[in-house]
């Protein structure tokens, strides 16, 4: 096919889009909305996955160390594990042990209580013992001590109104000292967490691995929901574009008849409608792309300002790739929708 012919047919397609302006706008809007939802689901899934990956690479086990031996305090703090059932199962024996151990070791901790509160950034002697024990466990690669003061500082910096918070607390820091425990193999996390929980001097253990797993699971279900949504919206888009093209075919039936009469080939007659569908799809993709790019940038700015602890993927790289995908998707949806419609409604 000559290039000039292609230009002529593209002109026909553009004219058709213009002639059917109202329906074209409807088609473009539908494509835009479909692709917008698709983009949102995609961005959500990608960020979830990113978040899960970041968390996975970060802390795996957090062990809260016994603060000053408050009466009955051990039992209260023992509930820091918002324990999912699997952890409860693996660490079943240890769940009761720490409270008992904490109660028995209360006297030992009492001696170090003063030193713990006076030197905020270094572990007390008792805490150092516990850290040594944890480090000796098989599979543990690193143990990182975080004092209650550091914890408070982190909290203040990560919360939007942290400064106000610290004023409210005053000097009475309610946070315990804790250690981050890194384990070589995620498989070992549950076992290590159980052992650490049974150590004296450890008030309770939070196993982040479980949250990460939950997050991965959630990402997975989000992906299924996304696939379903995408399929449903793709179908809608196909129908709307197909309908628009059907109207265009109908509006041009006289011209098509004459084209056939003077010896136009099938492809010559069909091509303008494919191009029309592709144009509609592409414009829809462009509209949704711009909305997504602008919207994601906005969400990211808001998130960065208010939720710095939530690591979102950077906008620039992500939206560039998303725009590519959207353009391709819009083009394919448009061309496919018109192809189906032309096949059904154009008897050449």
């Amino acid at each position: 096919m000559r290039l000039r012919t292609l230009a002529h047919l593209s002109g026909e397609a553009v004219a058709s889009v213009r002639d059917n302006s109202l329906l074209s706008i409807a088609a473009v809007s539908t494509v835009a909305i479909s692709l917008l939802v698709l983009s949102i689901v995609t961005l959500l899934a990608v960020n979830m996955q990113h978040l899960a990956a970041v968390l996975n690479a970060q802390v795996q086990i957090v062990a809260y160390l016994d603060p000053a031996p408050a009466v009955g305090g051990g039992a209260a703090l023992g509930s820091c594990q918002a324990a999912p059932s699997s952890t409860a199962a693996t660490g079943n024996s240890s769940a009761t042990v720490p409270t008992a151990a904490a109660a028995s070791s209360g006297a030992v901790s009492a001696a170090g209580a003063a030193s713990a509160s006076t030197s905020p950034s270094t572990p007390s002697a008792e805490e150092q013992t516990v850290i040594g024990q944890i480090e000796a466990l098989p599979g543990v690669t690193k143990v990182q001590f975080v004092s209650k003061q550091q914890a408070l500082n982190t909290l203040v910096s990560e919360l939007p109104n942290g400064a106000g918070l610290i004023r409210g607390i005053g000097t009475d820091n309610p946070l315990p000292d804790y250690v981050n425990i890194f384990v070589a193999d995620p498989q070992l996390v549950a076992g290590v967490a159980g052992q650490v929980a049974s150590m004296p001097g450890v008030s309770c253990v939070r196993n982040d691995q479980q949250y990460v797993n939950d997050l991965f699971g959630f990402t997975q279900s989000l992906r299924y929901v996304g696939i379903f949504l995408i399929a449903a919206l793709a179908l809608t888009t196909l129908v709307v574009i197909g309908n628009t093209v059907r109207v265009a075919v109908y509006a041009r039936r006289d011209q098509i008849g004459i084209m056939k009469l003077v010896g136009a080939t099938d492809s010559f007659i069909r091509l303008p409608f494919f191009i029309e569908g592709a144009i509609l799809g592409l414009i829809g993709a462009l509209v949704s792309g711009l909305l997504v790019a602008w919207g994601y940038g906005w969400v990211q700015r808001i998130a960065a300002a208010n939720m710095p602890f939530l690591p979102l993927l950077p906008a620039q790289a992500l939206t560039a790739r998303l725009l590519e995908g959207l353009a391709l998707g819009g083009l394919l949806l448009g061309a496919l929708g018109s192809a189906i419609s032309v096949r059904r409604h154009l008897n050449v």
Partner: peptide, 18 residues
């Protein structure tokens, strides 16, 4: 189409593109 390119057809209602 290639048959029709060797023919010419005229109708009562002209069938011109408006």
């Amino acid at each position: 189409p290639f048959l029709r390119r060797q023919l010419g057809v005229v109708f009562q209602d002209f069938k011109l593109l408006p």
